[in-house]
Simulated scan of single mutants.
Amino acid sequence: MIQQRANFDWLLKELADGVPQIQQIVVLSADGLRIARHGGDPDVADRLAAACAGLQSLASAVAAEIPDSDGQMQLVVLEVSGGFFYLMAAGAGAYLAVLANETVDAGLLGARMRDLVIRIGAHLTSPPRHDGRTV
Rank of each mutant, 00 (worst) to 15 (best):
C52M: 10
L78N: 12
R34G: 07
G107Q: 08
Q74M: 05
A97M: 11
A111V: 09
L99G: 02
C52G: 14
L109G: 12
L15E: 01
V44S: 14
D115Y: 01
M1Y: 03
A100H: 06
G93Y: 01
R112L: 14
I66M: 07
I2R: 10
A53N: 10
Q23G: 04
L78F: 07
V19N: 04
D9C: 00
L99H: 04
V104E: 02
R5Y: 07
I22A: 00
Q23L: 11
V104F: 02
G107D: 14
L48E: 11
L75H: 13
N7L: 14
E65H: 13
D41N: 14
P20M: 07
I118R: 15
M113C: 06
D9S: 02
Q23S: 15
A49C: 12
L109P: 12
G110Q: 11
L11C: 04
Y86I: 13
R119E: 00
S29T: 15
Q3A: 06
V77Y: 03
L28H: 11
L55D: 12
T103V: 13
Q3S: 08
M73K: 12
W10T: 13
V117N: 02
A53M: 07
S29A: 14
G91R: 01
F84H: 13
G83R: 08
D31H: 08
A64L: 06
A45G: 15
L87V: 14
H38P: 05
A16W: 01
D31E: 04
V98E: 02
P67V: 12
L48H: 09
G39T: 10
A16M: 15
D70W: 05
P42Q: 09
Q74H: 13
A6S: 07
D31Y: 01
E79P: 03
W10Q: 11
F8N: 04
Q21L: 06
K13G: 08
L108M: 09
D31W: 00
A6M: 05
G93P: 08
Q72W: 03
V62W: 04
M1F: 02
Q74P: 05
A111Q: 05
F85C: 12
Q4W: 04
L55G: 14
D41Q: 09
